[in-house]
């Protein structure tokens, strides 16, 4: 609603409109709420981790190979997402779209391996109803995966808008916000990698 525009060439495009500035701040605050959401899921998983009833323990089924592939894909996608925003700052629409497309490709790859891993666990007899520990695992990791899925759709929408409209204060703010979202999912994954997988495997094997 407020409409003051800044034309200082040193201000990044996404911060030049009042709407852009407000939306970016609001999204940071939304990420604060997301931290509370994931913190609750992490706490739930940690409380339930050892309550495995008659089923396997999560650490028993985790596999290093799949985990490393997923981690590599998602961390790299965060890097390419950063490159995309860098190209946006240079007003390079083609570079932005290229790097974002690579980001999405890596995201899809991550999802492919995650789904394959889930199917593997289910095949080994561990599904959401096996035990409290597995309920916690599937909902925590699945919520992250659902976020990545939503992010892929969202970034695609925004890229279509950039292709149609070029870089404006409005479209660049959207790109910047989706990049914040993408990096945030990367940070959450680092915690999942550490607190769920590494600790699970160390507890089980060590």
């Amino acid at each position: 609603m407020a409409h003051a525009e800044t034309h200082d060439p040193n201000t990044p495009l996404e911060y030049r409109s009042e709407t852009g500035r407000l939306n970016i701040l609001g999204f940071w605050i939304f990420l604060g709420a997301e931290i509370a959401l994931f913190a609750t899921l992490f706490a739930t998983y940690m409380v339930l981790e050892h309550r495995i009833a008659d089923g396997p323990s999560p650490g028993e089924l985790f596999e290093v190979k799949s985990l490393l592939i997923q981690t590599f894909l998602l961390l790299t996608s965060s890097f390419t997402c950063g490159l995309a925003v860098h190209e946006m700052r240079r007003q390079n629409v083609k570079g932005l779209i290229t790097w974002m497309a690579i980001t999405l490709g890596l995201g899809l790859g991550f999802l492919y391996f995650e789904i394959e891993e889930f199917l593997h666990f289910i095949h080994e007899g561990a599904n959401i109803g096996t035990s409290a520990a597995w309920s916690g695992f599937f909902v925590l990791v699945g919520t992250h995966g659902a976020h990545v899925t939503f992010g892929i759709f969202w970034v695609t929408m925004v890229l279509i808008q950039v292709a149609k409209r070029g870089l404006t204060p409005a479209t660049s703010a959207k790109v910047f916000i989706t990049s914040l979202y993408w990096h945030f999912l990367d940070v959450v994954w680092i915690f999942i990698f550490t607190a769920v997988y590494l600790m699970g495997m160390v507890m089980h094997n060590g």
């Binding site: 709420a33 997301e34 509370a36 959401l37 609750t40 899921l41 739930t44 409380v47 339930l48 309550r51 495995i52 009833a53 959401i128 109803g129 096996t130 035990s131 409290a132 520990a133 309920s135 916690g136 599937f138 909902v139």
Partner: peptide
């Protein structure tokens, strides 16, 4: 967000057979 998660977990327990808060499956 804490309420969102708590409600979602109970919904999973009731609709999709998870064991967050149930007496079976080592829920708490």
């Amino acid at each position: 967000p804490i309420l969102t998660v708590a409600l979602a977990l109970m919904t999973f327990d009731r609709l999709f057979g998870s064991h967050f808060f149930t007496l079976q499956g080592a829920g708490m």
